[in-house]
Simulated scan of single mutants.
Amino acid sequence: MASALVFLIVFGIVAAFWSAHRAAAEAALRIGRNACAAADVQWLDQSVQLAGMRLRRHPSGWIGIERSYHFDYSRAGDDRHRGRIVMLGSELREFVGPGRGDAEPLAFPRAG
């Protein structure tokens, strides 16, 4: 009986973490897509990539998970710039990308 209760508690914690993770990723996706549309730039790859997670204190004092996401966009079609979105829970904490911040073009080594 006790092992079933422990299993349910662990399962509940994992499910809550997964749900919060998906909510933050979907919010970052919307923010990146909307920022590219508003700046009239091409949003490349149609996705955001999780770049890192860490514990961070909310302004209310509670500890939460801060997630950093990267996304790529192009201004002219032949360049590639990297944007950054930082979410604390489901709240936007930082944005660097088209229209705000200074995102540098990505440099790729040439073959040959």
Results as ranks from 00 to 15, higher is better:
S3T: 11
R93N: 03
E26T: 02
I85D: 04
W62P: 01
W18Q: 14
R93T: 10
E104L: 12
V41Y: 02
F108T: 11
L8M: 06
G64M: 10
R110Q: 13
G99R: 07
W62C: 04
S47E: 11
I65S: 10
A25Y: 02
A76H: 05
S60D: 15
V14C: 06
Q49K: 12
V10C: 06
R67M: 15
R33T: 04
H81A: 03
D45K: 09
A51N: 15
V10W: 07
D78W: 02
G61S: 04
D79G: 00
C36D: 02
I65M: 14
M53V: 05
C36T: 02
R30F: 12
R54G: 11
L55M: 06
H81K: 01
Y73N: 11
V86C: 05
Y73D: 05
E66T: 11
A28F: 06
V96S: 02
C36I: 04
L55K: 08
S68T: 14
A2H: 07
G32N: 01
G112N: 06
E66Y: 03
F11C: 07
A2C: 07
I9D: 07
A15C: 07
A27K: 11
L106C: 07
A103D: 10
S19K: 12
A16D: 15
A107E: 12
A38Q: 11
V41W: 01
E66R: 13
G97M: 02
D78K: 03
F95E: 01
R82L: 03
H21R: 12
A2K: 14
V96K: 00
Y73W: 12
A76N: 09
H70K: 10
S19H: 14
W43L: 07
A24K: 01
R33C: 02
M87V: 03
R33H: 13
I9Q: 08
S90A: 13
A16Q: 09
A23T: 14
M87H: 06
V14G: 04
M87Q: 00
R93I: 14
G64H: 10
H21W: 12
E104K: 07
P98R: 10
A111W: 09
R75Y: 05
W62Y: 09
Y73S: 06
Q42A: 13
L55H: 06
G97L: 09
G32M: 01
R30N: 11
A24G: 06
F7P: 00
L50E: 15
H58W: 12
V6E: 05
S19A: 11
R100C: 05
L106V: 15
V6P: 02
